[in-house]
Nucleic acid binder design. Structure first.
Lengths: 225, 225
DNA sequence: CGACCATTTGATATGGATCAAGCGATGTGG
DNA sequence: CCACATCGCTTGATCCATATCAAATGGTCG
């Protein structure tokens, strides 16, 4: 249940995604079975409640999954970056909707084909478990994030992004403040204020609103308790 | 990837657990492989970070899984009731600790035995997927609960419990207000106040502090938005 | 240049936390 | 069997973090 797949250079126009963390993968046979699709900014990949007929792997760009609650609040479940697999559901239908945060390229693979292959090839089955395990971990970490203070949530988010970004300390955000707010259960104003506060205390630098440089990890970590 | 296991009568001394929702199961061959253990109130079933050598199925009582954060806050991940399976991790180690909320009987099964069996018996493999899927669903629902107001969280918790309780409208709580608070990311005071508020608005009755009767589902649901 | 959208900043309101005290049930020792 | 300690729960008063409302600023694209 480990995931030591080497991540080769990918000809993405976006972040080359070199991770230190183990990385989910579904390369090899499956790569052949899929066809690539492009999704423009804010366009829908699939909708909540639709049958989960396909599996998706981000090639470039960023995808968000989300739910809109009865009162209109939107909760973002996760952001998927190049290399990530999404859309794999435990049941038959999608429980979230998925949209492109920015223009994205996605590898689309028929789920039934993957399942059939998994039945024969145990390494594929292994990978499916790995993907699912990561998804569960993600959700559990999200729970832990949501009980914390605004500062802790934002710091946690920054670490999460930094861990997956190419340059360890400079984060290029594809998503808006509103996206971050909806992911963290806060408002855009709180996100903005918290970031400027981090900047003032020299924990981060904000060369541009979507570019964040982590300057003092320890100071941030102190908040990330 | 659906979970249509018939749920036969189970000779549990506790709630007969008749659910409308599909119910996780690991009966049959596996039932034979396990040995039953008893855990006294507040005693530990396993600790965070320990190797996940066993799988557990609640026979009677209630189990909570939790994490203690750096600053001492405790977050409860889930409550497991009779029939529920817990302790099944995506990785090799437990990511939460588990304790008995009340005196409990638990069926303990060696994980490796289950995995071996799953490799041969696809219906067992199916059940493992079902358990994992339910766990993922649980975590995602938990996220959705945590972004809501105190009233909505408490109402959501009551519905969650009612759905799994034997008598649809009368809930016997095994857990303390502190447990509920740590599950919902609130304080005991807020739990208490919210419940009395529900009582005053005639949405529920509180014959005893650990016994809650849902009187007006619609009124509660309105809060559950 | 002008319009639009995202972000920041400011002022105020409020839900839930915190601090504090009281209450009821349960159990223990005298 | 009662007195008292303990524990879980409730209730009250106050405080504070974050939401809300409002406006200004900045960046991007026609």
């Amino acid at each position: 249940m480990q995931h030591k797949n080497s991540v080769q250079a990918r000809k993405s126009s976006f972040a080359p995604a070199i991770h230190s963390a183990p990385k989910q993968n579904l390369d090899g046979p499956l790569e052949m079975m899929g066809s690539q699709m492009r999704f423009g900014r804010n366009s829908e990949v699939y909708g909540e409640g639709e049958p989960a007929e396909y599996l998706y792997k981000v090639v470039s760009g960023t995808i968000r999954t989300y739910k809109v609650l009865a009162d209109g609040r939107r909760q973002i479940g996760a952001f998927y970056l190049p290399g990530d697999i999404f859309g794999f559901e435990a049941g038959d239908d999608h429980t979230f909707s998925a949209e492109a945060v920015s223009d994205s390229a996605v590898l689309v693979i028929k789920r039934s084909a993957v399942m059939d292959l998994a039945a024969r090839d145990s390494s594929v089955a292994q990978q499916l478990w790995s993907v699912t395990g990561r998804e569960l971990q993600r959700a559990q970490d999200h729970v832990l994030l949501l009980i914390k203070s605004a500062q802790e949530r934002v710091a946690g988010f920054l670490f999460e992004m930094a861990k997956r970004a190419p340059g360890a300390n400079t984060i290029q955000l594809a998503m808006s403040r509103q996206d971050i707010a909806d992911y963290l259960g806060l408002t855009i104003e709180t996100i903005s204020r918290t970031l400027t506060q981090f900047e003032k205390s020299a924990a981060i630098a904000l060369p541009a609103s979507r570019q964040i440089e982590i300057r003092n990890r320890a100071a941030l970590a102190r908040l990330n308790s």
